[in-house]
Design a protein around this nucleic acid. Sequence first.
DNA 1: CGCACTCTTGACCGAGATCAACATTCGTGG
DNA 2: CCACGAATGTTGATCTCGGTCAAGAGTGCG
Lengths: 261, 261
Amino acid sequence: MKMEPEQIASFHTTDLHPLIRKLENSGPLTEHERDDLNTLPLVVKQVGARQDIVREGDSPGASFVLLDGVACAFKVTEDARRQVLAFHIRGDLPDLQCLHLPRINFNIGTITACKLGFVPHEDLRRLCHRQPRIADLLWRESLTYAAIFREWITNIGQRQALSRAAHLICEHIVRANAVGLVEGLACVFPMTQEDLADAMGLSVVHVNRILQELRKRGLIVLENRRLLVPDWGRLQEISEFDPGYLQLGCAGARAFARLAR
Amino acid sequence: MKMEPEQIASFHTTDLHPLIRKLENSGPLTEHERDDLNTLPLVVKQVGARQDIVREGDSPGASFVLLDGVACAFKVTEDARRQVLAFHIRGDLPDLQCLHLPRINFNIGTITACKLGFVPHEDLRRLCHRQPRIADLLWRESLTYAAIFREWITNIGQRQALSRAAHLICEHIVRANAVGLVEGLACVFPMTQEDLADAMGLSVVHVNRILQELRKRGLIVLENRRLLVPDWGRLQEISEFDPGYLQLGCAGARAFARLAR
DNA sequence: CGCACTCTTGACCGAGATCAACATTCGTGG
DNA sequence: CCACGAATGTTGATCTCGGTCAAGAGTGCG
């Protein structure tokens, strides 16, 4: 990863470091912690749609914050089947894990064009040792991902297709809402039916039929890569969605539920 | 890190805190770190088979090391279907996550009788702030669980029943081997077919048939709650099992593969 | 304008679910 | 130590959810 000084400098003068915004979602930071976070170098990089960011087996020297766009993590089995493990949106740290695990064992690719902010592991590790509370917050972040993975296991293992799709949609819109991407019960939803199929362990054809069913029941409006949820209550009900696992606190589903009324 | 036989033997001396043994699997600790770990209080507790240890919604004040026995983490859906999320063996820290997440959102129950060693969060958190490298190792531990969850998503989402079962078995025996629970290619395997079904998102009946198929092909011997793997190569092949995600280093599958030859 | 990607629809198929017995093992109290 | 009831494992019959295949319809982009 190359460090371009002008990008780093320009960033400092204007905005807050994106990690500050991220970590303050779980609680306020001290002035000292914020200052220290602001010293972290950040290299911004644009990536086009449908590009790989990280490949299985890589050992990157920096992790990235997703600043804009939608990406996904996935694995590919030997017989070339793809399992999508997570959809990532603004504020996510999709490869935070490689801060402590030597090799990454999944792929990360973009769905839309994305803006990424890379932070070198060296700096991040030093910061974590200086500021144990920041380490705790990042640790907490990776625990939250683990909780999401557990939820996906349950979703794929136990729920039938309709609830499974509804659950995926609920999770996405609540997470999008938490980072300000939802307006009027709607958000950008650029995943193709193939992406959704690979995320849910279903075939594309079946996903198509399930989405039509959800549309017919008036639970979702999905067109032009935009998702609208006209009836949050019923969607949540058939999906058995319980937002606790997302660890969003007051930015969470209660916030979304309030909107939906 | 080298795992000389005599080193392994020394880890088993009784006066060491079990967390020392656990963390030294990823690399040696300094004398100071070991001493500090040894100051951690440890409350040992016995639990019978098929008992709950932690329930969804709990906020325990201590996390535990599984000192002996087999346990599992699971979720229960609204329609009372159970998804097993992980099988836990000696050395595992099944609820480490609640060190940083306020509520636990899954259940942990025993399969066999278990011996647990509880460590209060307060002490653990203070230790992590004093010894950032120990924090890193525990963090790494939770990242490893996340990697296992990702593997399970892929297993359940993409593989068909036979490979899925084979994969589960491969993972178990390699993990068991890493903590010295495998002898002569065999280990204790106390999970019922119902446990396995709930772990793989299959019905009990189908699991039964799949296990018979694996037996018929000479890939496993499974009787009296014991598992033997007569043909590691072929089992690994049909399961597409690649042990990298377990982060076991030289205690990992290469060790097991060596045994199997 | 044309090609590639995405979505949609229909026909058919099959892996795995469900239901229902029955067999075997195990734990427990008498 | 045995008996008996509850788990657990096994087998067969039948059904169904979701997969596969194939073809066509939009849609968007170079």
